[in-house]
């Protein structure tokens, strides 16, 4: 396992592209959880992970971390407003902390999800566990 460099703390990783919330994407997401979804229904609360995951990927790619060695340790969202179909989302992730525990690295991250007007839609706090060699 190549350790993540401690220099990353405080570094910001924007998701490469804007994520547009489409009815098709929301329906596919809801149905993958076994739910049914029709236009007009609330967007599932965990949907912002679709956008946030892109910023996580930007971070992992930039630091050369293999995704298969990452396990999601914790995720918390705080919402300013519900997501809506038609939203175009930008996400930026910042690495908040990095610590080594039992051969694994625990990466603490914070993300901001903003709409096309730049208004905050939700914030996410995630812990990513970078697993050491099995």
């Amino acid at each position: 396992m190549v350790p993540v460099d401690t220099d990353v703390i405080g570094r910001r990783y924007p998701a490469g592209e804007q994520h547009e919330v489409t009815a098709e994407a929301v329906r596919a997401f809801a149905e993958a959880t076994g739910a049914t979804w029709s236009e007009g229904d609330p967007v599932p609360a965990t949907y912002p992970i679709v956008a946030a995951f892109r910023a996580m990927t930007a971070f992992l790619d930039a630091e050369g971390v293999d995704l298969s060695r990452i396990v999601h340790g914790e995720q918390r969202f705080a919402y300013e407003r519900p997501l809506a179909v038609g939203d175009r989302l930008d996400v930026e992730l910042v690495v908040a902390s990095l610590r080594a525990i039992g051969g694994n690295e625990i990466v603490g991250t914070a993300s901001e999800v903003r709409d096309a007007d730049g208004a905050l839609v939700c914030t996410g706090k995630a812990t990513l566990v970078h697993r050491g060699d099995a």
Partner: peptide, 10 residues
Amino acid sequence: AEVVELGAKF
């Protein structure tokens, strides 16, 4: 209902 906060440890 509108969700204001949601989270957990895995």
